[in-house]
């Protein structure tokens, strides 16, 4: 199958590959999988107090389209507020990367990874808030 030039660009020169420390409270980690093909994707977002995404890292082991989708998403979400990031639809990724119909699930995976990472961050923050409340109550 022929990949679009944008997919090839992201695949051969992926942006923001890597990891943040998982236990950093400002980091949300989303791990999602595509059971149709067995690809697994990890997206991590570093989010400031105000809910703005400062930085992003990904690790994807899968086909070119899955890697390109996650690479593109890390660029797309940087600087966005989480509410904007949550509104990102996979169709944006499909359009940008020119994904063929059989690879649309890769873009859905990237969309789901954003949602999973943000919900993980919210969970962290919820725990942290509770913790500080508890500490305040104990003091």
């Amino acid at each position: 199958m022929a990949y679009s030039s944008k997919v090839i660009d992201h695949y051969t020169n992926p942006r923001n590959v890597g990891s943040f420390a998982k236990d950093d409270p400002s980091v949300g980690t989303g791990v999602v999988g595509a059971p149709e093909c067995g690809d697994v994707m990890k997206l991590q977002l570093k989010i400031d107090e105000g809910g703005v995404i400062e930085d992003a890292r990904f690790k994807t082991f899968g086909c070119g389209s899955a890697i390109a989708s996650s690479s593109y998403v890390t660029e797309l979400v940087k600087g966005k507020h989480i509410d904007e990031a949550l509104a990102i639809k996979n169709t944006v990724i499909v359009k940008e990367l020119n994904l063929p119909p059989v690879k649309i699930h890769c873009s859905v995976l990237a969309e789901d990874a954003i949602k999973a990472a943000i919900s993980d961050w919210k969970k962290h923050r919820g725990n942290a808030a509770e913790q500080s409340k508890k500490t305040a109550a104990e003091a």
């Binding site: 791990v31 999602v32 999988g33 595509a34 059971p35 149709e36 697994v40 990890k42 690790k59 082991f61 699930h105 859905v108 995976l109 789901d112 999973a116």
Partner: peptide, 21 residues
């Protein structure tokens, strides 16, 4: 559809996949 409401990879399995990859 296999993937519908089914994107979560069991954490222990995901960890193994990432480690081996």
């Amino acid at each position: 559809k296999l993937a519908e409401d089914n994107k979560t990879v069991p954490p222990e399995l995901a960890e193994m996949v990432f480690e081996i990859q």
